[in-house]
Nucleic acid binder design. Sequence first.
RNA 1: GCCGCGUUGGUCAAGGGGUUAAGACGCCUCCCUUUCACGGAGGAAUCACGGGUUCGAAUCCCGUACGUGGUACCA
Length: 533
Amino acid sequence: MLIGFFMFMPQPGEPASYICIMSNKVRVRFAPSPTGGLHLGGVRTALYNYLFAKQHKGDFILRIEDTDQSRFVPGAEEYINECLNWCGLRPDESPLAGGGYSPYRQSERKHLYKEYADQLVKNGHAYYAFDTSEEIETMRERLKIEGRHSLQYDHSSRHTMRNSLYLSVTETQKLLDEGIPYVIRIKIEPGAIISFTDIIRGEAEFDTNNVDDKVLFKADGMPTYHLAVVVDDYLMKISHVFRGEEWMSSLPVHVLLWKYLGWEKQMPKWAHLPLILKPDGNGKLSKRDGERLGFPVFALNWTDLKTSADSYREIKGFRELGFLPEAFINLLAVLGWNDGTEQEIYSLDELIVKFSIEKVHHAGAKFDFEKAKWFNHEWIKLLPVESWWLIVKNDFASKGLIIDDDGKFRKVLALVKDRCTLLTDFYEQSSFFFLSPERINIEAITPKWDEKKQMFFIELIRAYELSILWEATGLEVEFKELAAANKLKPGELMLPFRIMLVGSKFGPGVFEIAGVIGKEETIKRITHTMSLL
RNA sequence: GCCGCGUUGGUCAAGGGGUUAAGACGCCUCCCUUUCACGGAGGAAUCACGGGUUCGAAUCCCGUACGUGGUACCA
């Protein structure tokens, strides 16, 4: 007991209120629904949960929320695993890793939920409802005509419907016996104020008059999200729930459920994260926006299967576009959180130390892809070539360039890394080191090309052929001496030389390039371009 | 419509009664590079609006506007 208490003592200067749960270990969960690729917001939710767990020496749990059988998407769960793995957010417990509270897939916990729903009915906190969706639709239309501002199935409308609250016991039993499909709804008592604390937003309250009788248990025998989260969070001893802001309005239902189930004392602390918004217009970021605006929204590539098997489309992911996981995590962390200093670049380990959930912002943030790229650029410069050169090598291979000299390859990458913001930029920035340029921008030379320059390059070839030590500084000295001997300014010669080696006006220093590609190749490229002039 | 949450430059944001209102991205100017980048130095906000409270408000209170989430047998 005491050990636990000391372990979770707040850091000096840290507000204590939300972690002093005597002897209770911090246990948080990331609970995605496997319906497709994981987008920015989802990964950020996972990240914040992970950071909080790790900084409190707690557990980070992955739970798959697949209670909606109609939305099952093959491959989505594998995608989630791969994504968390790529980001370095390894769950302590998950369907794959197992753990002391398995199973971690709600579809496999199906048998667990009914008893709690029944218990709620027995205690008068829930009831059977036999209404068809058509009947509910009719109710809404009627309420609209009556001029009501709430069209919900709630305390004010439920008496007009077919449910066990207003049907006699025998009628209800008859319907049940006949196998008429039913759902179980929570019975919200009007006229009460539900107040709660959100770690990010502070105190908040809801008037139960505005809360509807949410379905807890569906006609197909599956629980809805509302019942399943509460039951699972209880059973899995979850201490803190950090989830997207879209859940805020169902919080009164969840709080009530914790209370009605008799678990109020074990109720987790809540925090609702701000949304990530579209960069241009209105609304939260969706996968459509990425396609529309030309940037990824998913962490990894996701293949969206359409209705027919052969019609699909691939939605680009940050990883495939050339992002480093370090950069992706970093940009996500500071999209909606800031430690109050000027620091912007954080490693995962550093985030574990510096992250603070109560400093997460209240308002949604528009996603800015330019800034995202800046983070990647910073990380490319920061990380040693060793940690990412293989990714680039594979990218080259996918573009048809097989690298056989890894030593030269790494040298080249180090030379051009300042000018690449994405890992996929390296090909364009450095393929000329391995391949003779396909297109030579001859027009950049011709206007100022003359016999004197031609003579210079012929002599240069001769001089370079005799070079023993093939190295950038030496080559530069030779080049400049020869230029002086010919009474030419080196500046006028360097652009043609660059075009000869690179094909175009970009890249690192020309002598560096010549040094790396070697004597034979350098002379070959000069000769080739001269033949075009 | 109703309920909830929010609002500091184009974007991300610091600051939470007295500041010249930090910093970053992007943009513009210049410097450095005899290429292109990197890098460096500069430039650009009366803190949504209207009322209070106060000697004093970006900071506290109330309204309005706007944005955003929910309002499903989806999560």
